[in-house]
Design a protein around this nucleic acid. Structure first.
Lengths: 233, 233
DNA sequence: CCCACCAATTAGGTCTACCGAAATTACCAA
DNA sequence: TTGGTAATTTCGGTAGACCTAATTGGTGGG
């Protein structure tokens, strides 16, 4: 059995990586809230494990090996299944489930994860809209998503994902009706990174809200219907 | 937050203790599967914690303080709620839930435990018949229980608890219909610690089984109806 | 009343995962 | 080509929890 620390590092590397570029020591340190020196040490250990979990070149970052990625996906699968289960089966709010899952992901057995997946009907997305890897390690691919801050007035979209980093933000946007599957339309977008006014349908009533940049940038959507104004950057 | 090790020691002390006698170092060592030296070291630490968790006198064993007992009960509550939840909500078999709960008990938050208790209807006993402490730390008291090996031929009883130490045994006795609430009657008891023949009602059909001492001693019952033969030891 | 024996403790060491400070490396820019 | 700088790594240490081996303490049998 791998330690929690190892699982956390693999997960961090997986979620940070963008394309095939190696991931930097400092990015991992920041993500995990540890000192860069600790990361270097751990990366050396991961690169030396019997089944090599990462490809590591000093001063050039790391990449997961196939083995490492497999484990990262298992941890992520557990995390997201737990999140969804806590919400669906136990009625916990979506701003609580992430931190709970952060601890549970390491101790949930494979058979327990399978039971949850079964009960939930082998779901593809967690409460925040993040994809849940299948048992075989395949990530469901949704449509390409746009950040809400990049929409222009008049555009209509469906909320697909809300970044789960900040529980406060989650609670706030949920109170506005901004959760995955919700429909919204951009009414107005103030210049100079000003607030974005969006109209959201909540219980048959449309309400408009002004979202600051900080909040809007956490929301990802897919466009729907007619795309009015192509964005001039 | 207390470490898992601390929680495990407190739980062990609580479950080992009998009456008000101090618990011995070696008993704890055996229960936790660690060396006695490790226990001594940990007991000193527990006795020195800001809120004292145990009363410890060198060479004379330990006792939990009120604080220590409170924490032990919380851990046990989490453990048993998890066990029951895994069985009820996820259909896991009763021989699997203990080891799963062993890991989950340390990472389940208070609010998650409360949600489970709520969903389960504030249950008083776990799948093996062990009492689940209330949130305020009260242990439900059932009837006084007898070990199955002490019953005499002709006596009828209800199974109340099966010791959860050995999953194999759990699986075996469950296959015989011996689970909490099941009714049974002792048919015959071979001398010299020989097998005990019991009749168990399973799905309207009565079947009799011969249980060895090892197995029977794990089963606890409460007598029902007329007590025929008082036991001559 | 003493001693031997067993339980318990002390002493010294390992392993994991952290840290801060000091040294090193990569890389860009003049 | 040569710095300078920021990112990384090395180095020496800490804390927790465990171990083995050696020692000490309590106590029941003689």
């Amino acid at each position: 059995m791998l330690s929690e620390a190892v699982e956390d590092y693999l997960k961090a590397i997986y979620t940070i990586k963008d394309g095939t570029n190696p991931v930097s020591t400092s990015a991992i340190a920041q993500r995990l809230g540890v000192a860069p020196a600790s990361v270097t040490q751990m990366l050396k250990k991961l690169a030396d494990m019997k089944p090599r979990l990462v490809e590591y070149r000093r001063h050039h970052g790391v990449q997961l090996t196939a083995n490492g990625e497999k484990i990262a996906l298992e941890v992520i699968r557990h995390h997201r299944l737990v999140e969804l289960f806590l919400q669906e089966a136990l009625g916990m709010s979506w701003d609580q489930v992430d931190q709970e899952a952060e601890r549970l992901e390491h101790v949930v057995s494979e058979t327990l994860a399978d039971r949850m997946a079964e009960v939930l009907g082998h779901p593809e997305f967690d409460p925040h809209g993040d994809p849940i890897p299948s048992k075989s390690g395949d990530m469901p691919v949704g449509e390409a998503l746009l950040n809400l801050v990049h929409l222009n007035p008049g555009q209509e979209a469906i909320v697909r994902r809300v970044c789960d980093d900040d529980p406060e933000v989650l609670r706030y946007v949920a109170s506005l009706g901004i959760i995955p599957k919700a429909a919204l339309r951009v009414i107005e977008k103030a210049p100079f990174d000003g607030p974005i006014h969006v109209e959201v349908a909540v219980a048959d009533v449309n309400a408009t809200h002004a979202l600051g940049q900080r909040v809007a940038s956490q929301v990802f959507v897919s466009l729907v219907g007619n795309v009015d104004l192509p964005s001039p950057t």
